[in-house]
């Protein structure tokens, strides 16, 4: 059997005295699409950030493509899409500049030859070719998300890690994510995606890991949706009718008279 893309053994993370993750064993073989599921605060994001060395681990070991975390890990084969762009700093930056920064990794501190063409091509792939030289700060949330995908894809990763790509995102951008993931999956890329609900990703998911209070609660086939939600025709992104709000005290009504 070939080397797993991600191999974590006995992973534990303690932040500010609080145990966030405890005894996580995870092995992701090449070419798999793995969904990480769990409630808010169950440790999904922390797990992903620990696997990539963003959050220091308290115990356990992580190997990426068989190499331990550190300068020698094959960083050029890994693309990470965080939940959102960091809060805007004072200095403007264009989408092209943000994507170009994705060409740096490990000990590569200067953009490689042909970086301009590659960055523009990556922006084209997410449908932002005509906005490459616009400030990212002026873009909408969905467009910023697409810039972040382009930044991860510009280095042609063999492992793509997505942190809640569908939360707070309009439907066309969600579709961009799903298209991208299915295209990469067909090309043999390994994908780890954090999700709240399987939603539009459902048909792509090979395996699901559910976290609960920092421990693995389920590892195997993706959980089936209940009842009518499981139907093939069921559209997960439709607007659910709002439930009747509980009546507490006198209600306020506003009327506009022409």
């Amino acid at each position: 059997m070939s080397t797993p893309v991600i191999e974590a053994t006995g992973l534990g993370v303690t932040l500010g005295g609080q145990p966030i993750l405890d005894g996580i064993d995870l092995s992701v073989p090449a070419g798999e699409v793995l969904a990480l599921l769990g409630a808010n605060g169950s440790g999904k994001s922390t797990l992903v950030r620990t696997l990539l060395g963003v959050v220091p681990r308290t115990s356990g070991e992580v190997r990426l493509f068989g190499a331990p975390l550190g300068p020698s890990a094959p960083w050029h084969r890994i693309g990470y899409v965080p939940q959102r762009l960091p809060a805007a700093a004072g200095v403007p930056a264009t989408a092209y500049e943000v994507v170009s920064s994705g060409l740096l990794h490990g000990r590569t501190l200067r953009p490689p030859r042909g970086h301009r063409r590659r960055a523009l091509a990556a922006l084209d792939d997410v449908g932002l070719g005509d906005r490459a030289f616009q400030r990212v700060q002026e873009m909408s949330g969905g467009q910023q998300q697409r810039v972040l995908i382009a930044r991860a894809l510009v280095r042609d990763p063999d492992l793509l890690v997505l942190d809640e790509p569908t939360s707070g995102i309009d439907i066309p951008t969600q579709a961009t994510f799903v298209d991208t993931v299915s295209r990469l999956h067909d090309a043999g890329t390994t994908v780890v995606v954090i999700l709240h609900e399987l939603g539009p990703f459902a048909p792509l998911i090979d395996r699901a890991v559910v976290l609960r209070h920092g421990r693995v609660a389920h590892d195997g086939a993706p959980p089936r949706a209940r009842d009518e939600h499981a139907g093939e025709w069921h559209d997960h992104t439709h607007a659910h009718p709002d439930p009747e709000p509980p009546r507490t005290g006198p209600s306020l009504s506003v009327e506009v008279n022409p």
């Binding site: 950030r49 060395g53 550190g70 960083w75 990470y80 965080p82 920064s101 740096l104 990794h105």
Partner: peptide
């Protein structure tokens, strides 16, 4: 720029 703009991504890139 990469480190100043998005430190988390820079760490996840092994910089």
């Amino acid at each position: 720029f990469a480190v100043s703009h998005d430190e988390e991504f820079a760490r996840a890139s092994g910089l």
